[in-house]
């Protein structure tokens, strides 16, 4: 537990002291939302119907870039072996990084959400339900995203390989479910109306946290 906390704090320190990195995440989020605004400025569309996919695709791409350096950094700085030298278990590395990643992605999503409301002024019947769903889905996305980031950090061309590996496993599972649920929320439902769907997303969270815990050993070892 101590090790998880130490890694969590270390990741946040490293991340937030790298000002260019945080700034570029924020700027990227702005660009993504602006691109969507551009794409939908030339056609008539109903914001309520398109809000949910736009929001989730922005979360996905914004979050993806913050997932990328979390393991790669250790390899580039040569600190991965230093971690493996210590008597901690690889799963504490996974959990420390997962929690740090969740924190960063939550901040980023909040920022994207604010930008989104500025560019796409949509009416939200139930903000609480919307936030709940975002939190629940983000846990699953990050749990699996973290694991995939650990895989891609060991590959050549890791910047390209991360999205290549992420899209099929995230987009057609948890993000697709979240898009459906969120459109329902935009259309006026609250979280209790979509409980069955939320359960599926929760199951995804639990399964992939367990998968990460079990498989991270095989990824980190040389």
């Amino acid at each position: 537990m101590n090790a998880v906390k130490a890694i969590f704090l270390k990741e946040l320190r490293v991340e937030f002291r790298n000002k260019q990195m945080i700034n570029s995440y924020l700027i990227l989020s702005l660009m993504i939302i602006a691109s969507f605004r551009f794409a939908f400025s030339i056609i008539d569309f109903s914001i309520t119907e398109l809000a949910s996919p736009i929001l989730w695709i922005s979360f996905f791409f914004g979050g993806m870039f913050s997932l990328s350096p979390i393991y790669k950094r250790e390899i580039e700085q040569g600190t991965k072996e230093g971690l493996l030298l210590t008597p901690i278990s690889p799963s504490s590395i996974y959990f420390g990084k997962l929690f740090a990643n969740l924190f960063i992605i939550f901040c980023l999503e909040l920022f994207i959400l604010l930008l989104f409301f500025v560019f796409f002024p949509v009416n939200i019947p139930d903000l609480f339900s919307l936030l709940c769903i975002i939190v629940i889905s983000t846990i699953g996305i990050t749990a699996l995203g973290n694991l995939i980031s650990a895989i891609s950090s060991n590959l050549s061309q890791s910047e390209v390989m991360l999205p290549v590996l992420l899209v099929p496993v995230l987009l057609f599972t948890v993000i697709m479910s979240s898009v459906s649920v969120t459109s329902n929320v935009f259309a006026g439902a609250n979280i209790f109306d979509v409980l069955d769907e939320v359960r599926l997303i929760l199951a995804f969270d639990v399964v992939f946290i367990a998968v990460g815990y079990l498989l991270i050993d095989y990824i980190l070892e040389e």
């Binding site: 130490a6 270390k10 700085q77 040569g78 600190t79 072996e81 230093g82 971690l83 030298l85 210590t86």
Partner: peptide, 28 residues
């Protein structure tokens, strides 16, 4: 086992103290 490698295994964003503190935590 202690290992002073060719790579220093240090985080350049952290201070000297924080680096040692991090490893001290990992070794409890």
């Amino acid at each position: 086992i202690g290992f002073m490698s060719h790579e220093p295994y240090l985080y350049s964003e952290l201070s000297a103290w924080e680096n040692l503190d991090f490893y001290a935590n990992l070794y409890s």
